[in-house]
Amino acid sequence: MIPVVDAEVTPALQVSGLTLSVAGTRLLHGVDLTVPAGSRVALIGASGSGKSLTAGAVLGRLPAGAVATGAVRVAGDDVLGVPAARRTARTRVAAIAQDPLAALNPLVPVGAQLATPLRHRGGLRGAALRTRAAQLLTDVGLTDPDRVLRSVAGELSGGQRQRVCTAIALASAAGLLVADEPTTALDLVTQAQVVRLLHAHTADSALLFITHDVAVAATLCDRFVVLEAGRVVEDGPTAELVAAPASAHLRELVDAARAVA
């Protein structure tokens, strides 16, 4: 995939010159990154490299006291510093978080939480809605969708919660999905299942996949953007970068992945 930023095709996400400081410490130093519509981009970096801060800026969840400059354009509109509540339907970004506990309302059954996007976004009602909800849960690899629909977050395991969040994010049918380490809590079989699902469901939207695992990223994404200490150190097509990593950081990650696998 060639990253042509066509004037006619607005990229799903365009981050340019994003800097971010918290309490006087600069944590992001001019991050540039583009997710063209219909593509999947991996944002790769070790913990503390600024991946999650970048994701936060895209989602409209900056940490308290953060000062950000630059631009974050979702579907062409600059939304830097605009919280999700005040965005339009077009510029709201769906998210799958790393920590699945707070990602579900602990008091509302999964069925009701999954019904919201299906009703408001998919326009589904009644039996069609219920069928679709159960179908989505089966798609993310949950074997007993009816029981899960009745359950609240506390009755599910970490992996099950993570998959429910994935289902809700997919049902939201947003133009862009940000997945922040969505598979770390899952076993490998489920991870493979969720990766396949993300692959299938982002064909006509776009995905920013945040991870430290280059092997998983390589199976899912067309492009790699490598972040180190708040700077983009590498940006290119997956195959090229994996075959010949230019930065020391990516080379280390690739070597480690080959050593374990």
């Binding site: 991870q191 998983v216 199976t219 195959a239 994996v242 696998a261």
Partner: peptide, 11 residues
């Protein structure tokens, strides 16, 4: 078989 196939591989 599922466990074997689930291991992600770098190209």
């Amino acid at each position: 078989r599922a466990l074997v196939e689930a291991v992600p591989h770098l190209p």
